[in-house]
């Protein structure tokens, strides 16, 4: 190892030392603990009972495991690409050179900071089959009424749409990315006669590819772990005033993977089984992330490399 390599190693480790410290003290133990739990039967209190691979074999026979996995993949497959496109469009809108742009930015950003708890209430009103704005507009242009939260074929899409209200967050990242695009490059392209669309695709887009990669990975992480919205929307459970949350949407169509995992852990007290579920999800997530990173090598362009 050369002197400069050694110095770089020392400096690199020094810079990331807060992360290393946090990882070793706060993350390693919980990770190993959940791995240990996944091979046991454990309520969280009584003694852990070793059951070997039983949780994992049981899982593949569990109808709700497959159902929730299907729901989650379905959701993620829709939410990630839609999310990237909406966020970019929003960022472009936020980057317009008009006087009131700061007001527009705020307006576009607001929905992403509304408490999910309150937002989901508003969303339910918005999707009302008869009175909600969504179906009123749809009706005006001749579309049939869609019962977005009652028809199991549409519920996941309703959550995908709701997630887009939060696109203001990722849009900020894209905005920061757009802001980094050198004005000179765009101007010289304009002089060469490139229209706004061509300028976007040939100059802007390649320069924000690192942000796109980030957004895809984050979208994947959030999509695979989608939980809160469904939890809140269904915990008032359609047609029940009961103290117990009813079903996870019509025909369990909103039973997402982490929602099921959460129920197993904290409602059915099956910590072992929940851990097994968690590890399966984690491994699938990492494989998907690896695929995205590999694939990204062909289109992400870093200035510093």
């Amino acid at each position: 190892m050369t002197r400069s390599a050694r110095r770089n190693l020392r400096n690199g480790l020094l810079f990331i030392s807060p992360w290393i410290f946090g990882f070793l003290t706060l993350q390693v133990y919980p990770i190993l603990y959940s791995l240990r739990m996944s091979f046991t039967e454990y309520t969280g209190f009584n003694d852990m009972v070793d059951v070997g691979l039983q949780n994992f074999t049981e899982l593949f026979k569990d109808e709700l495991f497959w159902k929730s996995a299907y729901n989650t993949l379905y959701y993620t497959a829709l939410a990630v690409p839609i999310g990237v496109v909406v966020a970019i469009v929003l960022a472009i809108a936020m980057n317009q050179k008009v006087k009131e742009v700061s007001l527009y930015r705020a307006i576009l950003y607001i929905p992403s900071i509304l408490p999910v708890f309150a937002l989901s209430f508003v969303w339910i009103v918005f999707l009302n089959p008869k009175f909600g704005l969504f179906n009123r507009i749809g009706g005006a242009i001749g579309l049939p009424t869609i019962d977005m939260l009652g028809d199991p074929a549409w519920t996941k899409f309703a959550i995908v749409l709701m997630a887009q209200l939060g696109a203001g967050g990722p849009a900020l990242i894209f905005l920061a990315g757009l802001r980094g695009v050198p004005v000179e490059m765009l101007e010289s392209a304009q002089i060469d006669g490139a229209g706004p669309v061509r300028r976007f695709f040939s100059i802007t887009l390649p320069l924000i590819t690192p942000v796109i990669l980030y957004d895809v990975i984050m979208g994947l992480a959030m999509g695979l772990q989608v939980f809160t919205q469904a939890y809140i929307i269904t915990s008032g459970s359609a047609g029940s005033g009961g103290s117990i949350g009813g079903s996870a949407g019509p025909q369990d169509s909103l039973l997402f993977y982490v929602f099921y995992l959460y129920k197993c852990a904290f409602q059915y007290s099956q910590m072992g089984y929940a851990s097994a579920l968690a590890w399966v999800l984690f491994i699938v997530s990492v494989v998907l992330a690896l695929i995205v990173f590999k694939w990204a090598k062909s289109w992400v362009h870093y200035e510093s490399e």
Partner: peptide, 15 residues
């Protein structure tokens, strides 16, 4: 389905 839509319309969750 008609009954469900009725419930979604007049008694949605968290009404």
């Amino acid at each position: 389905q008609k009954a469900r839509t009725f419930i979604s319309t007049y008694a949605p969750p968290n009404n």
